[in-house]
């Protein structure tokens, strides 16, 4: 499976990476049919958003089809076509009427704000990667995002 990998400021490469697997019961693996490049990705490559860890897969936008779901997911089926929100959050408990979910702080291994700021980036990197990666079922070559 291929992915764009961050190797340092000004250094990104398309290369082979490991296939994703379900690690937590709330994980999903999505075969991407579309992704995109965001200005936020560029901040990291330009060095204007510090703290990006080497080896992190870049990109945080995705649309695709669910291949596999963890046992803790209650509202979707494998085969569903979905959009992947680019930040980690659930629209369950709102803090002070803001669009920040309290459950976000529970989900991020490095703790509460501001480390959660960009999913698929910085120290929160590992978490959404399972959602970000694509394994295309119909071709021998596979892609990741």
């Amino acid at each position: 499976m291929k992915a764009v990998v961050f190797h340092g400021i000004g250094d990104i490469r398309l290369e082979d990476v490991k296939e994703p697997r379900i690690k937590k019961t709330t994980d999903a693996i999505v075969a991407l049919t579309a992704s995109a490049i965001c200005g936020t990705d560029l901040h990291m490559v330009r060095g204007t958003l510090s703290g990006m860890q080497k080896g992190t897969i870049l990109g945080h936008e995705g649309v695709g089809v669910i291949e596999e779901l963890g046992k803790g997911v209650r509202n979707l089926f494998p085969g569903d076509r979905v959009v992947i929100p680019s930040t980690i959050g659930a629209a369950t408990v709102l803090i002070a009427g803001q669009a920040i979910s309290r459950s976000v702080t529970k989900l991020i291994p490095t703790g509460p704000m501001p480390e959660l700021r960009f999913s698929g980036a910085r120290k929160a990197a590992g978490l959404l990667m399972a959602c970000r990666r694509k394994r295309h079922a119909f071709h021998s070559q596979t892609w990741a995002w």
């Binding site: 929100p85 680019s86 930040t87 959050g89 659930a90 629209a91 709102l94 803001q98 669009a99 920040i100 979910s101 976000v104 700021r117 960009f118």
Partner: peptide, 8 residues
């Protein structure tokens, strides 16, 4: 602030 996209 940063957006919680799932919310919208």
């Amino acid at each position: 602030g940063n957006c919680n996209h799932r919310r919208y």
